[in-house]
């Protein structure tokens, strides 16, 4: 079984995000970077599926040369190969990214045969465009399910559980298939020392993408205006219960 997982390098999602003074981007001087959370789960899923079914896994990212760090993180978690589509910007727009990834998949498949499964994150933590996986799947003529929180692969078929409000819907897809997964499908492992050492030495394949215009061009980033009203302190423990119950009454819950 051959699996390709596509990831994006993003600032650590717990961090406080500040903008550069001209609003052209995020001030990254004091930020750590990580694989976007849904995609980290896609990496874990790829590692588990490759181990369960036998086969190889490859991680791919389109990003600045520094995104090699995220490829090595994925390799440390157990992915076999890394492919970087280097660009001289932090990101491209989603239609351009999908086009470049489609080209890269075709190149990799021409060389070594088709991937049974392509895994994407449902959306990136930063841009949140919700479309790259779907565009790639459509261009390759493969079925895709998004919002996937559970996947079972049997011979020639994937059974995917798609998360909806208050439950799941179940879908079956013929392979080769594409899944856009969500956090909750698994709990990503923390890489063992051995994996981290191997990842340091792993060769990263470079596949420079053809520049293209996707049609959506960022002009500026802005922080929303926040109305900061002072927090009313009700108390320090049991003494605050009556005031809290008053609030429940005010909003009509009591």
């Amino acid at each position: 079984m051959r699996i390709l997982v596509c990831v994006k390098r993003v600032p650590s999602p717990g961090a406080k995000i500040t903008l550069t003074e001209d609003g052209s981007g995020i001030d990254t001087r004091h930020l750590g970077f990580t694989i976007s959370p849904h995609e980290e789960c896609a990496v874990e899923e790829a590692v588990q599926l490759a181990a369960a079914h036998g086969g190889t896994s490859t991680v791919l990212t389109l990003g600045p040369p520094t995104a090699e760090e995220q490829l090595r993180n994925a390799i440390a978690m157990g992915i076999d190969h890394g492919v970087l589509l280097p660009i001289d910007a932090d990101e491209w727009d989603p239609r351009a990214v999908a086009g470049a990834i489609t080209d890269a998949v075709r190149t990799l498949e021409d060389e070594d045969g088709p991937f049974d499964l392509l895994l994407f994150g449902n959306e990136s933590a930063d841009a949140g465009n919700f479309q790259v996986g779907v565009r790639v799947a459509h261009a390759l003529g493969r079925a895709i399910v998004d919002g996937v929180k559970g996947a079972e692969v049997t011979d020639g078929e994937v059974r995917a559980r798609r998360s909806i409000p208050d439950g799941f819907t179940v879908h079956t897809l013929p392979t080769p298939a594409v899944l856009a997964v969500k956090e909750g499908i698994n709990l990503p492992r923390y890489p063992a020392m051995r994996g981290r050492l191997a990842a340091k030495k792993a060769a990263i394949r470079q596949l420079p993408p053809t520049p293209r215009d996707g049609g959506l061009r960022t002009l500026r980033l802005r922080a929303p205006q926040q109305e900061q009203t002072p927090t009313r302190i009700l108390g320090s423990g049991a003494d605050a219960a009556p005031a809290a119950a008053d609030i429940l009454e005010e909003v009509g819950l009591l």
Partner: peptide, 11 residues
């Protein structure tokens, strides 16, 4: 962007 902590103006 970022689930709503940032706005992006785009063309």
């Amino acid at each position: 962007r970022w689930g709503g902590v940032l706005y992006e103006d785009a063309h």
